[in-house]
Design a protein around this nucleic acid. Sequence first.
DNA 1: TCCTAAAATGAACTTTGTGTTGATTAATAA
DNA 2: TTATTAATCAACACAAAGTTCATTTTAGGA
Lengths: 202, 202
Amino acid sequence: MTENANDPRIVRTMHMLREALLELMEEQGFERITVKDITSKAGLNRGTFYLHYTDKFDLLDRITEEMMQGLREIAQTFDPLDLVLHESQDTPFPFSVRLFEYFGEHARFFSVMLGPKGDPAFSSKFKEFMQVHLLDKFNEFHHSEDRVPVPWDYLMAYLISAHLGIVQHWLEQGRDHTPWEMALMFTRMTQLSPIQSAGLKK
Amino acid sequence: MTENANDPRIVRTMHMLREALLELMEEQGFERITVKDITSKAGLNRGTFYLHYTDKFDLLDRITEEMMQGLREIAQTFDPLDLVLHESQDTPFPFSVRLFEYFGEHARFFSVMLGPKGDPAFSSKFKEFMQVHLLDKFNEFHHSEDRVPVPWDYLMAYLISAHLGIVQHWLEQGRDHTPWEMALMFTRMTQLSPIQSAGLKK
DNA sequence: TCCTAAAATGAACTTTGTGTTGATTAATAA
DNA sequence: TTATTAATCAACACAAAGTTCATTTTAGGA
């Protein structure tokens, strides 16, 4: 591969290849895409692809890693203390708002990758991210009392998957709400039971 | 393709191909698998594969369709009235128990397909199944009052994804609880808020 | 402006997997 | 035992993957 110089030719080429891959994934899913497809959509020589990536998996991995890095940087600004401040007020965590803004900025990527044409390994990665950066910070509250209605690990799986589902639905719907509104939904659903969220019970 | 005779040779061959595909998916994911891999793992001639399936997608589709058919048959036994009977008693819906039993019987398939090496299109299919066969039956309760804490469609996405997450976690853990216990978790989590489920609040 | 390093191109080539065909062998069921 | 048909085997054309190398183009410093 290349030593990641800041040669504008390299930057431009890699950018075109990434864009081409994302467009093709939207059209036909990752599976059916060939390197030939990618380079011809990007208007580049097929050989050029191999100057930068070993194969289409490698290309996808690099894009993914970049996105995860962005998420990690946002996660660093997360302060569990926020939860205390916003607990009983009906306002979203500023941190959640920032996350949704990021999803919105990279909607093309996330909506493909988390959708039915995407990569389930990415969903796994994303769930692990939420577990490590967010939920694990609440372990202090969890004193394994044995007399708990639902085992801790199952509650985590439930919450993480539920929140992922919200993000997926938002992206599928073409982001029909603002990041602020979405983050508020997060907060409410965590504090209410599903039946209360539906407005069937106070 | 073949007229689906009950010739034992055909039955055996198709079974071996299906088993080989699942094993390979566990190892390397669907994407990297070739027809050559499948037949050589099954100990069959490559040409034999094409006597029964057009390509690896066809093979996966057939397996999937069979499993979805099984789910649909269970769904037919679902009676919303059960919910009323079991509402305030701390017991699982018999219907949910049956679902978990089915997942357990076909654990290899579901744990691969719903896992990180699986097919995201299958997760979508499964979510749609839950939506159509289960949640849509509660639309009667939903009189779009506008003053609801969370929009109906987002609540559905939340619940479906959350339940899928529970199933995934159960399969990943090697089914460390009985179907009865799992179904009970379902029931409780639907009735309690996440904070209550954690035992942090009554 | 010219010169040099290196990125992109184009063409040729080997390898690997796909999907098909036709002749042969083996298993099944009557 | 025999007729049927599934499975095997070898050969084929084809498409895409990767690799190689000579040539052209581009970027940026002297």
